[in-house]
Structures are given as C-alpha cells and as structure tokens.
C-alpha cells in the first residue's frame, strides 16, 4: 500500500515538476511582458505543488529522501511523468495547448482529490484547486483567442493540437497502482476525470472553432519511466549543478 501511494504521489509530482521546468524556459522570452509574468506564475504554482507532493512522497517512502533528492537524484527511468509535459515548448500556441490539455485534466483531478481518504493529498489538493481553476480559465481563453483570432493563430493552434493529441491518452491510463489507490479511496475514478476533461475540451475547442483530433494511436510509457528523447536533456540541464557537487547544500 505505502509502495503504491509512493508511486502514485510521485506521478502527480513529476507531471508538475517537468511541466514547471518547461514553462520556466519561457521566463524572459514571453510575447509581451504581461504574459511573461502570467506564464511564470503558472510555472511557480506547478513548482509549489510539485514540491509539496515530492516532500510527501519522501515521507511515504520513509527512507529519508527530501524533495531535492527526488527531484535531482533519480535516473531518467525513475521519473513517472506523462510524455505530454516533457514535450518542447514550441511556439506560444504549442505551449498554451499543452497547458490547456493538462489543465483540463488537472482541475477535475484536484477537485476529486479533495475527497481523497489520504488527508495529506486532500490538503495539497485544497491549495491546488484554486490555482488550477485559474490556470484552466486562462489557458482556455488563450485557446479561444488563438482559434478564433487570426488565420495564422488558428493554424498554429490547430497544428499544436494535432501534434499533442497523441500524448493525451496517457493521462487516463490505469494500471495496478492506480486501481489499488482508487479502491482505497485515495485516487478518484479516472474514467470520471476523463469525462470531465473531454467535456471541457469539446466546449473550448468548439468556441475556438478548432477541430478535435480523432482518437488515433496514443503514446504511452511515461508512467513506467519510458520517456521521449527530450527527457534526457531536460534532466541533464536540471540536475547538472546538483550532481556536480554531491552532498552540497545550496
């Protein structure tokens, strides 16, 4: 049980950690100052939630690992984030579509986790739900602006959607860990999250005059630590100072 809880918490954490790492790349390079600030807020929110989850995962594991041990000193195969969040930023439409697809999953997940039988996860969700509500609203608005804005923005948003769609299936995969967590009332029923996600996506895409891609082949592997080639570079950049000075305090 504690093993499954550790894995489950780590999955929640890794999605946010890696997405935050990606969003942090934008800081100082946004399309307009106001957006630079908004995007950094998003990165900060995700990072804050990731830190809470990593700290908790370390406690559940009971081997004395801290948030930094888990963030910086695992090998690539031990990261369990979905491939969606490790995809490169691309243009602003690609970044926003990636966030939108994630936000539409993250919000109902956090709302459901409020009722988790695991008090700590419920408490973390309590803080995240407010942030996630705002994130989804803001990314939805950008998808609508792009879709219903200019011809160029419409094309860019549609291209991003077509490119990223194959990574959305992984958000709703189930396996023995998730089943155990759901049975224990710790994790919510993932089918219900998917339903909510699907509804949000349809609603926003329709207002944005964008086409929902067909559910063809869905990428998988992230939860088992099988990532895209991008992941190695993300970790190389993220970990190199920490690993170059083993045991150092910062």
């Amino acid at each position: 049980m504690s093993n499954a809880l550790f894995t489950y918490t780590l999955r929640l954490a890794d999605d946010l950690l890696i997405l935050s790492q990606r969003l942090g790349e934008w800081c100082g390079h946004g399309p307009v100052l106001e957006e630079d600030i908004a995007l950094t807020n998003r990165a900060l929110d995700h990072l804050g939630e990731a830190r809470n989850l990593l700290t908790y995962a370390g406690q559940v594991e009971g081997k004395g690992r801290t948030e930094d041990d888990l963030a910086y000193l695992r090998m690539e195969r031990q990261y369990t984030n979905v491939k969606l969040v490790e995809q490169p930023n691309g243009d602003y439409a690609h970044t926003m579509v990636r966030s939108f697809l994630f936000d539409a999953y993250h919000l109902p997940l956090m709302q459901a986790l409020l009722k988790s039988t695991d008090e700590q996860l419920a408490a973390i969700a309590g803080k995240s739900v407010k942030e996630a509500t705002y994130h989804l609203r803001a990314s939805s608005e950008w998808i609508i602006r792009f879709g219903d804005g200019t011809e160029e923005s419409h094309q860019r948003a549609q291209a991003a959607l077509d490119n990223l769609w194959t990574y959305t299936g992984e958000l709703f995969e189930s396996d023995a860990v998730l089943e155990e967590m759901t049975k224990a009332g710790i994790a919510p029923d993932i089918a219900a999250i998917k339903e909510s996600w699907s509804k949000t996506v349809d609603q926003v895409l329709s207002e944005a005059t964008l086409k929902r891609p067909a559910d063809a082949f869905m990428m998988t592997g992230g939860r088992k630590g099988l990532h895209s080639e991008h992941m190695g570079f993300i970790l190389a950049e993220m970990q190199h100072v920490t690993r170059a000075y083993p045991g150092a305090e910062w």
């Binding site: 790492q21 942090g24 790349e25 800081c27 100072v241």
Partner: peptide
C-alpha cells in the same frame, strides 16, 4: 532558472 540546484532556489529565482 532551469539549472537552479534546489527546488527552493528555483522557486525564488522564478519569483
């Protein structure tokens, strides 16, 4: 930002 050696330092630097 992407290379900050701890998560606390990363958050501070982002902010």
């Amino acid at each position: 930002i992407t290379r900050a050696p701890s998560l606390k330092r990363k958050a501070i630097l982002l902010a």
